[in-house]
Design a binder for these strands. Structure first.
Lengths: 215, 215
DNA sequence: TTGCCAACATACTCCTCGGTATGTAATCTT
DNA sequence: AAGATTACATACCGAGGAGTATGTTGGCAA
């Protein structure tokens, strides 16, 4: 077990690390990278720094792991849909629906990932982790590319408005991802409530790029 | 001059303060609140901390001022459009177009404002500035309310899809505001390029809530 | 011209926090 | 069962940075 601590990318999810990542995501979500202290994460775990630094060599590495966890989860679920059955509009709608749902179900991790690297890091630790940084940005780009390709299909098929796919992706993602800014999970909120929100957002996003009339 | 340093809200824009706010916005945009040092802001001004602390009592107060500047600029420009001529769809489209354009033209200040208070602050300085914090959140809510009312008009008029106005506002803003995440100003970028982006985003946002067919 | 004050710069304090070095109990290996 | 390793906790260090206390300079009033 614990096959690699050297490569922060694509690590096999050690159980202990997973627990740390989840706790870290909650605190990062609340305070952001810079304002989050390792002690605060440890406290949420009911432990001390020692535990965290046993598995992670720096705060940045821990933060990266949250990002990776988020992107892998999304890609793992959405890619099959993109490559599945249905025309571009049907696939895109299913992707958007699932995407929005994951954001809400997995809020801490996903919110941190959506806020993204935001120069906060490039500025803070700079060139130190430049390589890791690049590979995470790559993960994001690859994920966006999945959507861009389906959108491109739709445009070619005449289903969607004629825009550069990469540009059309932006407001589409915007309508969905923006929920990480305003959505606050309420107690008493059922899975159906989440599904309702996801459908609403997906509806707006889809109409935004669909061409012509629909009901 | 310098009528009030006591109330951080609604201050009359002293020229010296404005210059500090603009510089601060640039650095805050780059590194976020927590990772921005007052020294860094001072350096961008070609000055030292002394200059900043002569006008601001804390980093938080300076940050608040950036937020206020952003919200006042938006409200000042968009409110007249909301109360102007045209049906709900026409007014909303004009508002969205201007909103998106301001975000790009005034990127540093607006980007900081869009990222918003994000608990980063509530956590850091907590109850200290709770009152100021509330009033800034109020500014944001009021601004969103301007859109919500026009959207409500459109729904009642049967122009827009039937959704709770407050909820419909979310994906609409999302499609627009998301540009603060991906948009990077290029040299050689003309006003027409910005206008083009604004039109594209506005188009997607409008189709997202418009009911029925359009060209 | 002199005193006063605004508008800064300089120098210092103090505390937080990332990271490390070291200790220690449990578990595993042989 | 006796080292060795894992999985932490504890104790410490050093840097960075917010805020302050104290100069210093130029303009303006009387």
């Amino acid at each position: 077990m614990d096959a690699d601590t050297s490569s922060p990318i694509s690590l096999t999810g050690n159980e202990a690390r997973d627990e740390i990542v989840r706790a870290a995501a909650e605190v990062f979500m609340e305070f952001g990278f810079a304002a989050t202290s390792i002690d605060a994460v440890a406290e949420r775990l009911g432990a001390t720094k020692g535990r965290i630094y046993h598995y992670y060599r720096s705060k940045a590495e821990l933060y990266f792991d949250v990002q990776i966890a988020a992107m892998e989860k999304l890609a793992r679920e959405i890619e099959p849909i993109a490559k599945g059955a249905g025309n571009a509009a049907e696939r895109l709608e299913a992707m958007a629906l699932r995407h929005a749902t994951i954001l809400m179900e997995d809020l801490p991790v996903q919110k941190v990932a959506v806020r993204g690297l935001e120069r906060e890091l490039l500025g803070a630790v700079a060139a130190r982790h430049a390589k890791t940084l690049r590979s995470i940005i790559r993960l994001r780009d690859d994920y966006e590319q999945i959507f861009a390709e389906v959108i491109d299909d739709g445009i070619r098929a005449g289903l969607f408005v004629d825009l550069p796919p990469r540009l059309a992706t932006k407001p589409f993602f915007g309508a969905l991802n923006w929920l990480t800014v305003w959505y606050v999970p309420r107690r008493l909120q059922t899975a159906e409530d989440i599904a309702e929100i996801a459908r609403t957002l997906t509806g707006c996003a889809m109409r935004g790029i669909l061409k012509g009339a629909q009901l």
